[in-house]
């Protein structure tokens, strides 16, 4: 199936890359929605404990599927796209590590609430596509 050009802003590279990138984006969305839904269910205590645990593991499985889709993209894409992706992942990892440890120090000191640590992961998630865009700009 050929992807429409209107999706060009989402993906780049060959048709195979576009298809794989779209697959990663869709699985990421499904996982993110599942994560948000199960978070809400846990916070509001809407479902029995057993069902919630099943939901948590279900969300994890969706996360693993997303990782596998990303791995497939990295394996099948060409070497420059792979380099851009790896540089973006390194940037996101660095932001997560430095940001996470800084946040942890502040939480130990009592400056920020430890329960808001989730924002560090949010920063990593946001940093990755920014890194990809920076890479595309760097090599174009």
């Amino acid at each position: 199936m050929k992807l429409p050009d209107s999706l060009g802003f989402l993906c780049s590279g060959s048709e195979r890359d576009r298809r794989n990138q779209l697959r990663v984006a869709l699985w990421s969305l499904v996982w993110a929605f599942s994560f948000l839904a199960i978070t809400l269910v846990i916070k509001k205590n809407w479902l029995p404990y057993g069902v919630t645990i099943v939901g948590v593991f279900g969300t994890s499985i969706l996360g693993i599927v997303t990782i596998l889709a990303h791995r497939r993209f990295l394996r099948e894409t060409d070497e420059l796209q792979r380099k851009i992706e790896v540089e973006a992942l390194a940037l996101a990892f660095g932001v997560g590590l430095v940001g996470g440890l800084t946040y942890w120090l502040l939480a130990v000191r009592g400056g920020v609430p430890a329960k808001d640590f989730i924002y560090v992961f949010a920063a990593m998630i946001i940093t990755h596509p920014i890194g990809v865009l920076m890479g595309r700009r760097k090599y174009s």
């Binding site: 780049s12 590279g13 060959s14 890359d17 894409t77 060409d78 070497e79 420059l80 796209q81 380099k83 595309r136 760097k138 090599y139 174009s140």
Partner: peptide, 19 residues
């Protein structure tokens, strides 16, 4: 070459050395 157009462009401009 079975690569993206961006890769060809980057090599031509000397921004990327191929493997």
């Amino acid at each position: 070459l079975d690569v993206s157009r961006q890769t060809v462009n980057a090599i031509e401009k000397g921004k990327y050395d191929p493997s």
